[in-house]
């Protein structure tokens, strides 16, 4: 499903025009991005949680240069699925 299909489906569901929906969609993504770059994690009920964290520098082997390489600190986005989402795709044991 690409973006336009998503927008179409959403606009039907929200009873808004596609332009409006697209604006909302873009602003939602930018809100997510802003929160993550400000170190704010957030969670979506029944889906999972997003958070950003600093990955410390670490050493790793670079096969191209055949040498060890020091990879610098990086801020990365993490996602962790909620248990509801897990159950969605797995048979729930009773």
């Amino acid at each position: 499903m690409n973006k336009s299909e998503t927008i179409k489906a959403l606009s039907e569901r929200l009873e808004l025009t596609q332009t409006q929906t697209e604006e909302l969609y873009n602003s939602l993504v930018s809100i997510f991005t802003e929160h993550l770059s400000n170190n704010n994690g957030f969670s979506i009920p029944d889906f999972g949680s997003f958070s950003s964290e600093i990955r410390e520098e670490y050493k790793s082997y670079n096969p191209h240069y055949k040498q060890m390489m020091l990879l610098p600190k990086k801020k990365v986005v993490r996602f962790s699925q909620s248990s509801a989402l897990k159950d969605e795709f797995n048979e729930v044991e009773l």
Partner: peptide
Amino acid sequence: KALEQTVNAPFAGLEPTLLG
């Protein structure tokens, strides 16, 4: 990539270094 770079903006200047 877009998200990755925005989030990583404070560390964007850092480059990996060879230790060999």
